[in-house]
């Protein structure tokens, strides 16, 4: 049934809820920061943050953890967004990891992710003394996220204790912290992937071009298409890049992010393709498939 006259449509209801959460963060914490990972969820998050505080600017910085292995297009997009929307952009790279030349080829995805993402995030949060970090996780993404609070408490080591979560009733959020503790806040917890796409479509939110099908140089590694984004890529013997029309369903470090063959060159065709597709979004991300419950373990260790 469509929404009756004096009721909000579900997208409008989700939008209002997210805006309320953003404002609660700005009003309740001394040093909030918003994680900005440049993808479609971050783009929606940015849009909602702008709405929440309009006509004021976003009253906290956006933080990007740069592993130095992101797609070049992502970095260009990030810098342009910061300029267009006038938010404060912070970029952090793990300096020890950088000095040691940590990369996905020599160190493997697990160690690379731990050093350049998880540890880097921890460094940045500690250095900034942030008491609230806003992220774009959704409850429909993964089973352990389905149970996480919107305001999710972290101890001084940034660890999540799933058995000791604060009850979260109505829309009353307990934002109080002891010194050293922090909060992770997820304003789009209740959105689904389809909500994200239909919202991007109806609000005309700009997203990085990597989501749209274009001809790109790729190699095929056991059915995962890897795009060659720069000359740091390590080819295996006999491997040759080929141009194929591909797009990305999720964005990250280019050597670890699989592209899909697709002709979807604009938003409507992406949404159409998504509705017909039969694999879930995070499948392309290698970190989840290690073992059952691996995301939960990572979160306990401080992964966002």
């Amino acid at each position: 049934m469509t929404a009756p006259h004096n009721a909000l449509t579900h997208l409008k209801a989700l939008e209002s809820e997210s805006i309320e959460i953003f404002r609660e963060v700005a009003a309740s914490f001394e040093r909030p920061v918003m994680m900005y990972s440049i993808g479609k969820d971050s783009s929606v998050l940015l849009h909602l943050a702008r709405k929440a505080f309009f006509p004021s600017r976003i009253p906290f910085p956006l933080l990007h953890i740069d592993t130095t292995w992101k797609f070049k297009e992502m970095i260009a997009f990030r810098n342009r967004m910061a300029e267009e929307h006038g938010f404060e952009l912070l970029v952090h790279t793990n300096p020890e990891g950088l000095a040691a030349g940590v990369n996905p080829f020599d160190h493997g995805s697990a160690r690379f992710t731990d050093i350049m993402k998880t540890q880097a995030l921890r460094q940045a949060l500690n250095a900034g003394k942030y008491d609230a970090a806003i992220g774009g996780a959704r409850r429909d993404e993964e089973k352990s996220r389905a149970k996480e609070r919107i305001f999710s408490h972290r101890n001084a080591q940034h660890a999540w204790d799933p058995k000791n979560q604060r009850p979260e009733l109505w829309r009353i959020f307990n934002t109080r912290l002891a010194p050293g503790e922090s909060m992770r806040v997820f304003p789009i917890s209740n959105w689904t992937e389809l909500d994200i796409w239909t919202y991007i479509y109806s609000e005309q939110i700009e997203i990085p071009p990597l989501y749209f099908a274009r001809s790109r140089p790729v190699v095929d590694r056991s059915n995962t298409l890897i795009m060659i984004d720069d000359d740091r890529f390590r080819f295996e013997p006999g491997e040759q890049p080929r141009d194929e029309v591909v797009r990305f369903r999720t964005l990250g470090d280019y050597p670890l992010t699989g592209a899909i063959r697709s002709d979807a060159g604009d938003l409507p065709s992406i949404i159409m393709e998504m509705q017909a597709s039969r694999t879930s979004e995070r499948e392309g991300r290698l970190i989840d498939s290690d073992s059952v419950g691996s995301m939960e373990k990572k979160k306990q260790e401080g992964y966002f």
């Binding site: 469509t2 929404a3 449509t9 579900h10 997208l11 409507p268």
Partner: peptide, 14 residues
């Protein structure tokens, strides 16, 4: 009619 379909998606109640 994609427009219509999308409108249907966004106008649903919750």
């Amino acid at each position: 009619d994609l427009e219509l379909w999308l409108k249907q998606q966004t106008d649903k109640s919750l």
